[in-house]
Design a protein around this nucleic acid. Structure first.
Lengths: 105, 105
DNA sequence: TGTTTGCATAACCATTCGGTTATGAATTAA
DNA sequence: TTAATTCATAACCGAATGGTTATGCAAACA
C-alpha cells in the first residue's frame, strides 16, 4: 500500500479529521458519511478520496454503494513524529522541575 | 497564549516540520534557521511566523536578531488526537489476534 | 557617519485547496 | 423497461498556500 499523499496534509483539514472520528468504529457508505456534514456530496467524495490516498480510509464497492472504513495504522506516523518531540519536551520540563526542587532543599 | 492558527495545519508542511526538528533542542536566529534550507529568507520568515501563530515557536528579539526556540507543548493536541484513535485501533488488532489464537487452541 | 547585517514587508506569481453546480454511469427498485 | 439511487467526474470559482524579488527599517560595525 503506497501512500500517495502525506498523512500530515490529509489530517490538516478539520472536516477530514471529523470523518476519521466518524469512521473510527463503524463502516459507512459515502452517503452516510455525507449525512453528517452540511456540504455537497461531491465535496464529501473529494475529502474521502484524499483520505484513501494516504491509506487512512479503505473503500469497498458493494453494488452501487461504497463502504468506507478507517485504517488508522497510518496515524502511527503522526504520533511517532509528534511524540518524539513531546517526550523530549516533557523531559526538559522535568529537568526544570528537578532544578527548582533542588533549590528548595 | 491564544493559538491563532491550527497546529494540524501548521505541521502539514514538511519544511515547517523540519524547522521544529531543528529548534527542538537549540535556539537559533532566523538566519541560522535559513542556513538549513535552500529557499529565500522571506520564505523562511513566513514559515516561522506561521509556527509562532500556533505557539509552536517563540521568538525573542535581541538587538537586530530574532532568537527562535520551540515550545512543543502544542504538539500534545496532535498526539492526543491521533493517539486516541491509535489506541482504539491497536485494541481492535489485539482483539483480532486473540480471536486467531483462540482458533488455534 | 556611512555601510553592512538581520529581518520584515510588499507586491507579485503559479499552484493547490475547498467548495459549488451540472452531468453521467452503474446499480437497484418499481 | 423505466425510474430512482449512489457515487464519480468535469468544469468552474474564490481564497489560501508556498514561493519569488525588491525594498525598507533598525541595529551594529568600520
Amino acid at each position: 500500500m503506497i501512500a500517495r499523499r502525506d498523512v500530515f496534509q490529509a489530517i490538516a483539514d478539520p472536516t477530514r479529521r471529523a470523518m476519521i472520528g466518524l469512521l473510527a468504529n463503524k463502516t459507512l457508505t459515502i452517503n452516510e458519511v455525507a449525512d453528517n456534514f452540511s456540504m455537497s456530496q461531491p465535496a464529501i467524495s473529494k475529502h474521502m478520496h484524499i483520505l484513501t490516498e494516504c491509506g487512512l480510509v479503505v473503500m469497498v464497492k458493494i453494488g452501487r454503494e461504497k463502504h468506507c472504513r478507517a485504517n488508522l495504522k497510518g496515524l502511527e506516523e503522526v504520533t511517532r513524529w509528534a511524540g518524539q518531540y513531546l517526550v523530549f519536551w516533557n523531559q526538559r520540563l522535568d529537568a526544570l522541575e528537578d532544578l527548582l526542587n533542588a533549590d528548595n532543599d
